[in-house]
Design a protein around this nucleic acid. Structure first.
Lengths: 268, 268
DNA sequence: ATGACGCTTCGGCCACGGCCGAAACATCGG
DNA sequence: CCGATGTTTCGGCCGTGGCCGAAGCGTCAT
């Protein structure tokens, strides 16, 4: 018998409930939402995100770690926490999408909303209006081919060359087939949470974000998931990707203000 | 400003936690898992699935309905409950996937597992070994084209004709662009929960399941999500789709026993 | 009409779990 | 070695919420 099928069994309601219950506390949900930004955060930072005391935070994190929702890495007197797996990130993503549906309850459109809507990191890839615009530009240039429904997406041969030239190794051994015997999708569209339009995810999306950060075209905003597009970055994206200069306006809408640097973080 | 962007705001941790907390109770999780099968179920049936009393079930369902997780429809002295949206189904799907990872805790491989692994319904489409085999057969016949990573999938012109001939109207007005202004993906691969290999989801997957049920090639098993492949169905699938006769063996594994009819349900 | 059945509401019990302050433990800097 | 800082453990308080039995209200059948 297939070894995989032998070890894989069905998820019981109990196990599902266990995970969901862990995400079902406001404090923990806010921590995990903060971790969706990608980089690992310290327990103290997570405590501030959650709005609870340090002891309470520690208890929450211990439970999350025991259940395999987050993973911890000790470094000096800090402990850095990150989401334990991409599967967990996808649960959170699905929850975010479902949460935008519900009843039209009170949703304070804080000032940070604008920056987040414009560009942010989503676990390991780029999201927001910029991500949607980049996908559009790549498609318009013939680098990517989208299926008619906008779900399936694949790089054209020309696009592969273009992206390789930009510094992305799409066939690289970077992420081979996991233990599941299945390679991570090269580039999958991921329904954007704020724009409700698809953007790039998968290996290509992750590589793109990494490359843009390396180039200094994008910079992380310490306290949030927001990303700033630097002057060089905007010029570079317009020159290289033919990003339309009016990309901030989204679907013919008004431009949104960009994220600004806040209090710098103290860890590497 | 784009009207959608104006009304769409960011999901707060509170709202996420609200939904997750509702899925985070064993009784409710078992109810929702049962509803993942597709057809609406009565409150009594859900009570049996959850293993709690009728009053308790009623309370749970009231909460789930108030939060927009399930939807109710009264009919006679029964009340039929179903999942309220595809977004909720996708949250559950992501949770099921995440649940198979965790620590190797006790997972009783009950006798029903085999039937479920072979063929079952997953919200609105087909899942299990049969679904994986069907996707493989469609690809082998040149009706579908998969990208190298097995994520993107699209019907070939020949495939469209073949599927239309089989009774599937892929371009039909059946499911147009939703309020999000985005059409439902035609056919998206959906990582199979038990096989951990992709199978057909999306509009095509839903249409295929519906058609197979209409033809009597597949039949629902009352008490569970399992599906039975009828004699006519097996012959038909082998003749029409060129399903390999040894499809039950999965990846070179041992065959799995098929689901048998159980106690018949009393509602239409 | 009258009983049977399905579902919901009500009332009350009880346990689980989130929260904090105090204190212990670890690490870094002087 | 000694404070300062980050994190965890401990103890105890208290509200939330799951659970059931009894009772109420519909719908269907005879």
């Amino acid at each position: 018998m297939n070894q995989l099928a032998a070890t894989t069994s069905f998820a019981s309601g109990a196990r599902i409930a266990e995970i969901a219950a862990l995400l079902g506390d406001p404090a923990r949900a806010n921590m995990l939402l903060a971790l969706m930004g990608g980089p690992a955060l310290t327990a103290g930072e997570l405590a501030r995100h959650a709005g609870v005391s340090a002891p309470t935070t520690s208890g929450h994190l211990a439970k999350l770690a025991a259940a395999g929702v987050v993973a911890a890495r000790a470094q000096g007197r800090h402990r850095y926490y990150r989401l334990a797996s991409r599967e967990i990130a996808e649960v959170l993503h699905a929850l975010m999408l479902a949460a935008t549906l519900g009843p039209p309850r009170h949703r304070p459109p804080g000032p940070r909303d604008g920056a987040l809507r414009l560009a942010r990191s989503c676990y390991d890839h780029l999201a927001g209006r910029l991500a949607v615009a980049l996908l559009g530009a790549l498609e318009a240039q013939g680098h990517l081919r989208l299926s008619s429904d906008g779900e399936a997406v694949e790089p054209t041969p020309q696009g592969r060359a273009f992206l390789a030239d930009f510094g992305l190794d799409l066939d690289g051994a970077g992420e081979r087939a996991g233990k599941g015997g299945r390679a991570r999708p090269l580039c999958r569209t991921c329904l954007d949470w704020s724009e409700r339009r698809p953007h790039l995810s998968g290996r290509l999306g992750a590589g793109l974000l990494e490359r843009l950060l390396t180039l200094g075209w994008l910079a992380r905003v310490p306290g949030s998931r927001a990303l700033t597009l630097t002057r060089a970055g905007e010029a570079g994206l317009i020159a290289t990707f033919h990003l339309p200069p009016d990309w901030r306006e989204g679907e013919g809408g008004a431009p949104v203000q960009m994220a600004r640097q806040q209090t710098p973080r103290t860890h590497p």
